[in-house]
Design a protein around this nucleic acid. Structure first.
Lengths: 245, 245
DNA sequence: CAGTGGTCTAGACCACTGG
DNA sequence: CAGTGGTCTAGACCACTGG
C-alpha cells in the first residue's frame, strides 16, 4: 500500500468517526489517534488540517478536536459547471448546440488579447442538471491545438477535464463578472422559460498555469433555478494586531 | 525573540528576495535556505507554503521554488456599498427611505435565527453613486442596542462604520447570494428605470466577530450600472488520489 | 494542574525534473 | 544521474484550556 492510499484510508476512518459523532462530537487526542493509525503525530495532523480546511473539523488548542458544528465559510473556487452541479447533488449533462471555428470580432479579440480576425473555437452548449435546462453557455477557446477538438468527446467529458487530460492545458484561475439580464426569445426557448425572463449572465475569462488566456465564456443561467453563492470575509482592520503565522 | 517574530522576520527576508527577483525568479533550495535562516527544513517549508498560498511563490517538485509569474488574485472581500463605490472611483451617497422597528415574519426570523415576531430594525435606503440611483437596499438589523439608532446619523456615516464606532459591533464575514430578478413598478420608479427592468438581487447575511448574526440585507442593483466581479482560483490539483468515486 | 493542540527539530527516504 | 521539492518519523517543548 502506498502512502497516498494509507492517508486516504485514515481520512475515511476519521470521516466515519466524525459521522458517527460518537463522543459528543469530540475526537480522541492526536497522540492517541496517531498511535491507533500507526503514523507519526505530524502525519496525522496533516490529515486533520485538511479536514479542518474542508470545514469538517474544528481544533482548539488546549481543548481538543471537535466535529464542526456549522459548516465553515469555504473560499469561492473556480469550478466547472459539472463540478458545481455535482456539488449541489445534481447530475450534470450537456447538449452540444454547435462547435466550430470562428474569426474573433473586435470585442472578443480584445478580451482574448488576440488580433481581430484570429481563429478561435466556438462551443455552444445547453447545460442541464437532472435533465432540466439550467444554462446556455457559449465558450471561445483560444489554444490553437484545440482546433482538432471533436464535439463528440464533450458529450462524455467535462471541458476542463478534457483540456487537462488530452491537451495538458490546466485551468488555474478566472475573472468572472456576474450581471442580470433578460433572455431573448431564442435563448428563452432553449432554456424552456417564457421570453424575456430574467437571467443571470456570468462572463468568465479563464487563465492557465502561466497566466495565459484559455477561454472566454458567457453563461446564461435560468434565474429561477440558479443563484450564485459567495462567502466573503472582512479584511482584518488596521487596529488588529497582525496574527503571526 | 519569540517564535512568531522569528517567522515573521524570515518571511520578510524571503519577500525581499522575491522582490529583488535576484536569481531569475528562482529561490535557493530549501535545504540551503533552512541552513541560512537557522531553522529546520520543515519549519522553512511552512513559511514557503504560506507564501505559496498567498500566490507569491510557486513550487515544483524536482525543479525548484519560483517567484510567481502571475499577479496575485485578490480575494473577494466583504465591503460596504460606500467602500465599494469609492473603490470604483465613484462618490457614494444615501437617501433614507425609512427606518423603523418591525416584527420579524416567519421567513425573516428563520434567516436571522430569531423567534418569529422578534423586533428588528428595518432600514431602507436608496443608494447612489455620483448622485445617480444605483441600488435599493433593505437591511434588517438584529442587535438590540441598535433600537436607539438615529436615521440622521446614517446620512453622514456608513452603516458598518457606525456599528463599529458607536456600538463596538464589528462585521467579520457574510454569506451572499446573487440572483437575477425583475423590478416591481415601485422599485423601478425609485431606481429611475422602466418597470420590469432586470436587476441583480444580492442577499447578504452578515456575521460578527464571534459568528453572531448582525444583519440580513437585500439589495436590488440596477442591471445596467452594476455588475458583480469575482476572481477565483482553481483548487490546487490534489496530490492525493481521489477516494474511489 | 493534567491534558490538549501548536510548533519545531534532525534526519530519512520518496517522487519528480531536467540535463 | 544529481538535485530538487514532498512526505514521514520520533521526540521535544510551547501555549492554551478547563476543572
Amino acid at each position: 500500500m502506498d502512502r497516498a492510499q494509507k492517508r486516504q484510508q485514515i481520512k475515511q476512518q476519521l470521516l466515519a468517526m466524525i459521522k458517527s459523532n460518537a463522543n459528543g462530537g469530540r475526537l480522541p487526542p492526536e497522540r492517541e489517534l496517531s498511535e491507533r493509525f500507526a503514523v507519526a503525530r505530524e502525519t496525522l495532523r496533516r490529515i486533520l488540517r485538511e479536514l479542518e480546511q474542508d470545514g469538517v473539523l474544528e481544533r482548539k488548542q488546549g481543548a481538543g478536536t471537535f466535529v464542526s458544528g456549522q459548516p465553515v465559510l469555504k473560499q469561492p473556487q473556480l469550478r466547472s459547471f459539472s463540478e458545481e452541479m455535482r456539488e449541489r447533488g445534481l447530475t450534470p449533462s450537456s447538449e452540444i448546440l454547435s462547435c466550430r471555428r470562428v474569426a474573433a470580432g473586435a470585442k472578443l479579440a480584445s478580451r482574448l488579447k488576440l488580433i481581430p480576425g484570429s481563429s478561435v473555437m466556438e462551443l455552444r452548449r445547453l447545460r442541464m442538471a437532472n435533465d432540466e435546462p439550467m444554462a446556455l453557455e457559449t465558450t471561445y477557446l483560444v489554444p490553437s491545438q484545440l482546433q482538432t477538438l471533436e464535439p463528440a468527446e464533450l458529450t462524455r467529458h467535462s471541458l476542463y477535464e478534457l483540456l487537462a487530460q488530452r491537451f495538458d492545458i490546466h485551468v488555474r484561475s478566472a475573472m468572472q463578472q456576474v450581471q442580470a439580464t433578460v433572455l431573448s426569445e431564442e435563448e428563452a426557448d432553449l432554456l424552456e422559460v417564457p421570453a424575456f425572463s430574467p437571467s443571470l449572465l456570468v462572463e468568465r475569462l479563464t487563465l492557465g498555469d502561466s497566466g495565459e488566456i484559455i477561454e472566454f465564456a458567457k453563461s446564461l443561467y435560468r434565474a429561477d433555478r440558479y443563484r450564485f453563492e459567495l462567502q466573503v470575509r472582512r479584511p482584518p482592520t488596521a487596529a488588529d494586531p497582525e496574527p503571526a503565522a
